[in-house]
Write a protein that binds this DNA or RNA. Structure first.
Lengths: 175, 175
DNA sequence: TATTGTTATACTCTATAACTATA
DNA sequence: TATAGTTATAGAGTATAACAATA
């Protein structure tokens, strides 16, 4: 067999770039989840807190759509956060069926701790790269994410297809 | 608040590099699993076929250790592959408790199809990058993987800790 | 009749424990 | 007594379906 094409960095496609992405990505996710344990949070909680902070007063419906999480699953996740006093379910002033979600002061504190944790995590994870290499890596990944139509800030989890709901509004928007 | 440190490519740590790695990695894994469906294989099967190819005749014990998969889980995965005629469990000549695992001809065919699929997957995934950028990205990821002590070719899945068994032999080795 | 949030249920994936047959 | 493979069981995590209150 002639060596096809230019120097591919590795020979076996299963040890290739796609595998590396998946391997390092899974590692990153697992280590992040680990760091969240002392905060008594799981990764989905983190995403929820972040979205509520940016869109105070939104409904569970809206939250679930933004994160690609099923309504029934949101109930349990929000129960956790409410029980711990990080999130409040206030009655919506306009629609008595729905709630308006708000961060409490404790919720804002938790979000700050969470941001610190995420920063530490990222530093530890990328210890092998210097500052400019990290920027270059982030650029590559952002370009892949954009080309693959991943919604910024939304983790695919393990959905079969990203974006289970048909609609994905035109603007990549704030979140 | 003064802007601390140099230009970080993104402001919010949850939209940072670590998140991108996890997001793109999960996407890569999901799309790969999708491409495996027509082959009637799941990602763990792929890893198993690959290891058996490289280490013909090894035991389930050895296989499980190499992949970080529990023995009980291997049973079902190997049952799948054996039922489909891709893998053979031969009696070990030296120890009647254990099997020696071998790829069948059909198994080798499947592995080839799998390699093609992986190549197509990688091409589609990295469409946003040209050849030299892909090489650069692979280098970054390989360096992170090495620094984080990930075993080459072994997917962390979602284990709490990588490397559940204590021993990890000195050499990063063939697989 | 449609929608919001809820509950109950089921399914997938993975880990733990107990068992058997060898060693 | 310890080990290889197996079986049975249980636990996450997530999706589906049916339901009550409201629109």
């Amino acid at each position: 067999m002639a060596r096809t094409r230019a120097s591919s960095p590795s020979l076996d496609p299963m040890d290739g770039l796609a595998f590396l992405l998946s391997q390092v990505g899974a590692h990153a996710a697992a280590r992040f989840a680990e760091r969240l344990v002392p905060l008594e949070l799981a990764p989905p909680h983190a995403g929820i807190l972040k979205v509520i902070k940016r869109a105070d007063g939104l409904s569970q419906q809206a939250l679930g759509e933004k994160l690609g999480v099923f309504p029934s699953r949101l109930v349990a996740l929000l129960d956790d956060l409410e029980k711990r006093g990080l999130v409040e379910r206030r009655d919506s002033p306009t629609d008595r069926r729905s709630y308006a979600l708000y961060l409490t002061d404790a919720g804002r504190d938790a979000l700050e701790k969470l941001d610190r944790t995420a920063r530490e995590h990222q530093d530890a994870l990328c210890a092998a790269l210097d500052e400019s290499e990290r920027a270059q890596l982030a650029d590559y990944l952002a370009r892949i994410a954009a080309q693959q139509q991943l919604t910024p800030g939304v983790h695919p989890g393990f959905r079969k297809l990203d974006r289970p709901e048909g609609r994905r509004g035109g603007s990549p928007g704030p979140c």
